[in-house]
Write a protein that binds this DNA or RNA. Sequence first.
DNA 1: TTGAAAGCGCTAACAG
DNA 2: CTGTTAGCGCTTTCAA
Lengths: 325, 325
Amino acid sequence: MVNREEVARLAGVSPMTVTRVVTGKGYVSERTREKVMEVIDALGYIPNKIAAGLVSGKSNRIAIVVPDLSNPYYLQVVGAMIDEAKNYDYVVSVYKASEAELPQVIESLISNRVAGVVNYASEFPKKYEKHLNDIGAKTIRTSYFSGEFSMELEYEDAMRKAIDSLIEKGAKKIIFIAGMMTEFVSIDQRVPFYKKYLKEKGLEVGEDSVVYGNYPREEAFMVGYNAAMQLVKSGCEFDAAFCMNDMMAFGVINGLRRMGKRVPEDVKVIGFDNIQMSAFFEPPLSSIYVDTRQEARFYFDYIVGNPVDYERKLVASYVERKSAD
Amino acid sequence: MVNREEVARLAGVSPMTVTRVVTGKGYVSERTREKVMEVIDALGYIPNKIAAGLVSGKSNRIAIVVPDLSNPYYLQVVGAMIDEAKNYDYVVSVYKASEAELPQVIESLISNRVAGVVNYASEFPKKYEKHLNDIGAKTIRTSYFSGEFSMELEYEDAMRKAIDSLIEKGAKKIIFIAGMMTEFVSIDQRVPFYKKYLKEKGLEVGEDSVVYGNYPREEAFMVGYNAAMQLVKSGCEFDAAFCMNDMMAFGVINGLRRMGKRVPEDVKVIGFDNIQMSAFFEPPLSSIYVDTRQEARFYFDYIVGNPVDYERKLVASYVERKSAD
DNA sequence: TTGAAAGCGCTAACAG
DNA sequence: CTGTTAGCGCTTTCAA
C-alpha cells in the first residue's frame, strides 16, 4: 500500500508537506500542491485514516444505535443522518442492539473512537460515561427519552389536536398502545400526557387504557398485531387507538381486521412518526410526527460542534388521514 | 484514557503480557492472567482498536452498502449480517450510496481498512480494485448482479411456479415492473428469464412488457406507485404484474387502486423478497424470495474466511398469497 | 511463560 | 512556506 512517504519521495518534498496537501491544513505553495497532487493521483494514494485517528485521537465516524431495524422510522433518521453527514465528511455506522447487547456495542464504539453516538436503543450504561467522555464522543439519547442532549420535543399540541378530532368524531374509549415494556415508556412523555388530556376532556382512563408490550424485543408490527387481537378478544370496548409508532399501528389495523373490526368505522387508529408508507397504506394512516431531517440536523450540529443559532425545539404535527376519519 | 501500559504497571507485568491477556493469543500463566484481568476490570480498560488496527493492518469492520434505506429488504439483509457478525466479534456498518456516491464511500472504506464490503449499490469502481486487494478486503457485489463472489442464485424454478400459477388463473398479459434503470436490470437474470419463459408458454411479450424506472434513485414504493398509474393511463391491458421487489409491489398495488383497479380481481401482483410486511399487507402479497439469513451466512463465511463445506447456492421459493389469487 | 525493541502511518509542535 | 522531531497505543518479532 502506497503511503505518505512514498508520495513525498516521488514529489521531492517532505512527508509533512504531503500531509498538508491532503488535509488542506497549513500553507503549501500552489506549485508544490500541484506537484504533490499529481503524484497522489498517479500513485492512487489513499490516506490511512486509522493512523490519522490514532494520532489525533479522533475519528470521523458517527454511530447510530437502534433497537429494531424493521422499523422504517429509524431508517428515516439514519437516512437523514447519512445525508447530513456528507456535508461534513463524516461517516455513519448503524448498529442494532437490544438493551442486553448495548454494553458490548458501546465498548466497541469506544475501542474505535467514534466521534458521536446517537442512541435509540436504551439508556447508556453508566459504566461507560467516563470513557465516552475521555474520547470526546458526543452522546445523544433519543429525544423520546429526554436525554443528556437536551432538545425540547413538543408533542402536546399535536396530541391535543388528534384527541380533539377523535372526540369530535364520537370516540368514547381511546386506547394507547404503547407496545413497550413499562420501564421504557416511563421516560416517555406521551403516555402521561395522553392520560392527563383524556381526563381533562372527561373521558374514561382505566387500568386497561394503556397497552404495554414487548417492543423492541419483538418487531413493532407484530407487537401491534398481537395487541389488537388480545384487546378484542378480551372484550375491551374501544373505538380508537393511539399507537407508539406507525409500524405498530399497521400491525394494529391488521389485527383488528383479522378480528372482524373495520378501520376507521369501528375503531379509529393513529400512529406516531408519519413514515412514508403511512400515506399509502390502506386505509391511509393518521399520524403524529416531527421533522426527521431537522432532528438529524440538530444531532449533527451537536456532534460536530456547530454553533447553534436556533432554538433546540422540535414541534410535532398531526396529519389526519382516513384511518381516523 | 487508561492504556495498556498503565494496566501493566499496576499489575506488575510488562505491556506485552497485558496484550496477551486481552487478545487471548500466546501463553500467560493462569495467575498472571487473573491478576491482569483484575486490574483491567478495576481500571475499566478498553483496548484501542485503532492502534491495534494500525499495526496489524486489519479491522473487524464489515461494510454493507445499499442504494435505498427505505427498502426493508436491505435491512433484512443488514439485520442478518449483524446477527451473524456477533458470532465473530465483527461490526457491521451500513452505508447508503448512489452510483455517483459509491467511489467516495469506497475510498472512505479503504481509508478505514474494512475487512469486507457487501455492495448492493452498483458496480465497484475498477479504480479501487487494487486498493481493496492491498488491504485484504473481501468484496461482494450482491448476487443479483452475479458478482466476483460467486454464488449461484436459483430464481428460475420459483419464477416458473409463479408464472404457471398466474396463467392457470387466467392471466393473459403479465408485465414485469423492473423499476430500475436499464443498465441495472441488464445484469439481472430475472427479466431475461421472464421473457424467455413467457414465450415458452406462448404468451405475448411486447415492447411494453417490461417497465423500467428510476430505482434506486427514487424510493421503491414511489417507483411502483407511479409505474402502475402510468401503465393504466397508457391504456395497457395487463392482468398481472411481477415487481422487482415487494416495496415496489406495494406501490403498484396502491397505484392500481388509485386508478380504480382491484387486486387481485383485475390485476394480480407478485413481488420479490418476501419481506415480513408482505404477509400482513392488504391484500397479502405473493412473493418470491431467498433465505436472507443464509445469504448473510454465505457472505460472512467468505469474508472471515471460514472453510465452506456446503454448496454456494441459494434457491428461491414462491409464496402465494391473496394478491395473486 | 515473559519481556524488550522496532515500527505501523500519520499528526502536532516547533524550528527554520 | 517547508522540514524535523517526537510520539499516538498497539502488534510483531525475537530474545531471554
